[in-house]
Simulated scan of single mutants.
Amino acid sequence: MTALPAKTPRNRRLRSARTILALMLREMATSYGRSIMGYLWAIVEPVAALALMTVVFSVFLRSPPIGSNFPLFYASGFLVFNIYVDVGNNAARAVQYSRPLLEFPAVTPLDTILARFLLNFLTHLMVIAIILTGIIEIYDLHQIMDFRKLILALVIAGGFALSIGVFNCYLFVAYPSYAQIWAILNRPMFIVSGIFFLFDQVPQPFRDILWFNPIVHIVGLMRAGIYPTYEANYVSVTYVIGISMVLSLIGLHLIRRYLRDAMNL
C-alpha cells in the first residue's frame, strides 16, 4: 500500500491560503454581486460619503489645526479611524457570516476572519488612495508626504483592526447582545480619537488620558506621514502593536477553546 504524503507545514499553509482566497471570492460574490460594478460601488460609496461629510464639516471648521486644507486634515484622521470601525467589525462577524462553511474540515474560524479582513482592508486601502489623491488634485495641493510613516500607519491600523476582529469574534457569537454593547461603547471614539483636533492641543490632564487610546497614535502617525512638519512625538508604535498582540492572543484562545461550544448553543 502506498503511503499518503505527510501533511507538512508548507502543505498546510498552501491549503490555508487557497481556503482564504476562496472565501474572499465568495465574500465578493455575495456582498458585491457577481459583476465588477458591485465591487466598484463598494469603493465609490465610502468616497462619496466622506466627500459629503467633508463638505458639511468644512463649513463650520474652515481653518484646520495643521495645514491649510480642511478636507485633507479631516481625511487624515477619519480614514484610519474607519479602518478600525469597519474592518474590525467585519472581521469580528466573519464566523457568523461563514458559519455553514465551518462544517468542512478545510475551513477554520481563523481562515474566515483572515479572508474577510483582507478583502475589507484592501478595499479600504483603495478608498484611501482614491480620496487622498482626489483631494490633492482637486485643491491643487503641493503636498510632500513621508510615505514610510504613511504606510506604517496603515499597517498598524490594519493590524489593530484585525486584533479587534479576533478578540470580538467569539464574543459576537456567544453573546449576541454584546454587538450592540460594543457599538454603543464605540460611539464616543469618533470624538476622542483626534479626528477633529490635534492631540498636542488637548489640555492636561485629558491629554494623558487620551494617550491610552490606540487610535490617537494611529491618527497621529498618519498625519505625520501626510504633514512632514508635524512631528507627533507622542506616537508609540510599540504601544499599539503591544495592545494588538494582547487582544489577538486573548481572542485566539477564546476561539480555540470555546467557539465551537458557543456555535452549538
Rank of each mutant, 00 (worst) to 15 (best):
V166M: 14
F196H: 11
A48L: 15
S163H: 05
G38M: 04
A262F: 09
I83Y: 06
A92T: 00
M263G: 10
G242D: 00
A106P: 02
A183N: 15
H142Y: 11
I181L: 15
L102T: 08
A48W: 00
L265I: 13
I43E: 01
P109D: 09
I243A: 11
I164K: 14
G88E: 12
V173I: 15
I209K: 00
L110D: 08
P203M: 07
S16M: 09
S76F: 05
R18H: 09
I250A: 13
T54L: 13
F190L: 14
I151S: 03
S76N: 05
A94P: 04
L154I: 08
G159S: 03
I138N: 06
G251Y: 03
S63A: 15
P188I: 01
E45H: 12
I255K: 09
Y230S: 00
L25A: 15
P71Q: 07
I138K: 11
I164P: 02
A49N: 14
L221I: 04
W211A: 04
M53N: 13
K149R: 11
Y175G: 07
I156M: 00
F206C: 04
L210A: 12
N11D: 10
N89P: 03
V237F: 03
I130S: 05
V246H: 10
I43F: 03
R12C: 03
L162E: 03
L150W: 12
T229K: 12
L259Y: 06
P188D: 05
P188Q: 11
L141E: 06
L152I: 06
V55L: 13
P188L: 03
Y170E: 06
L118C: 04
I184P: 04
L72A: 06
L114E: 02
E231V: 11
L249Q: 10
F117E: 00
L50Q: 03
I215D: 01
Y239N: 01
I135W: 11
